[in-house]
Design a binder for these strands. Structure first.
Lengths: 207, 207
DNA sequence: ATATGGTTTAACCGAATGGTCAAAAGTAGA
DNA sequence: TCTACTTTTGACCATTCGGTTAAACCATAT
């Protein structure tokens, strides 16, 4: 692959990413992507056979980026509580830089669930749990988190971090009306979310 | 308005609702809506001038339905904790019957934020807070919830309830892989969510 | 019966869309 | 410079889409 080819293909991919995230699969136009990349529309089909192929490339990349942000948690050799603090700080910071990513992923997955299936095959959620359990066995018992509750806890954590971005359109309007600032809210949220979850955990103990 | 006219107009509206929720504004086809309603495509334009008009009618109705589900909380003369329990039970039950509503609303709002603006004008979020404050003054002080934290708390509650439906496409695949059932998860969530939030509140007191 | 006015349809239209193709332009080796 | 190959383009195509129109249909009142 030559340098120029790489340049062109990359420019196409980046333009497609921008347009697809903004307009969605159905709303995006191949002509808009070509214009944005400064090339002829036929070139899109030269590098990516069809709109479907191009979208799939973008979607898989973005989904991988999104999911990869969950894994650093497993590298840390810290307590569960510190992991939670670390996660919210890092994850919300990441989403501040990519605020439209959650809405894009969630919408396209709901529109076509088959798309995410093969991507998810790579991840083993039970192994995910096993890792956490081995790392935090004592804490999980102390917090009375059994396997069924694990899904509840993890989805609640994800929800608290992701939802403000998924509902960004509503929240920004709501905040504007009440004189609050969405960015301030997000900054505060990094700490609030962590302490919120940790308090909920502490109160659930068997002791 | 005659009976037949009402029948037709309603059938159009219901078909449009179904198609728009499933495919979104951009993905929906006027022909599909007409077919679904069992009528000629021109009739759509006879009752609703354009696709935009038809969509707006559907969107505003669905947004109103969604928002109206937050207000019963203010009628209850119970403690804050019981209100939280009541809210999760009712709200998740409602979403179980309308599982695609959150993704539809969130996506279309993000795609075109202007659409929700005029709807939100009707609601006064500061008055909302004032009502809650007058009803639960003592509890809010005990839980150390000041005005800035109110937005954090309310959005966390909304997130915990709504997110599983917004991320339904991912969660169903994830659950299938790990041998869990999404409906069981939702049933458990009604209680889990309430106790989770209440524990988080209790731990935040000034005492 | 017939005129009136709202309702419904089949046929049609222009624009936009994803996609194709043959030729031009560019590149690199002999 | 000639040749073989890849990259890029403009023109074009078939189809789809939202929307229009004129006529048919139908219930009701006179």
């Amino acid at each position: 692959m030559t340098d120029i080819e790489k340049q062109t293909e990359e420019r196409i991919f980046e333009s497609a990413t921008e347009i697809f995230i903004e307009k969605g699969m159905d709303g995006a136009r191949m002509q808009d992507i070509a214009d944005h990349a400064g090339i002829n529309k036929a070139l899109l089909h030269y590098y990516y056979r069809s709109k479907e192929h191009l979208f799939e490339a973008v979607f898989e990349k973005m989904a991988a980026v999104m999911f990869s942000r969950f894994s650093p948690v497993f590298d840390e050799k810290t307590s569960l509580e510190d992991k939670i603090r670390f996660f919210f700080r890092e994850h919300i910071s990441f989403l501040q830089k990519n605020p439209r990513l959650p809405a894009f992923i969630l919408n396209e997955v709901n529109r076509n669930p088959a798309r995410i299936k093969k991507l998810i095959q790579r991840y083993n959620i039970n192994e995910f749990w096993n890792t956490l359990e081995s790392q935090h066995h004592d804490e999980l018992i102390r917090y009375n988190i059994r396997r069924e509750k694990m899904a509840q806890l993890m989805t609640s954590i994800a929800a608290i971090s992701i939802f403000p971005f998924a509902a960004r359109g509503i929240m920004e309007v709501l905040f504007e009306k009440s004189g609050q600032d969405f960015n301030d809210y997000l900054e505060q949220r990094k700490d609030f979310a962590a302490e919120f979850v940790i308090r909920a955990l502490k109160g659930s103990g068997t002791e």
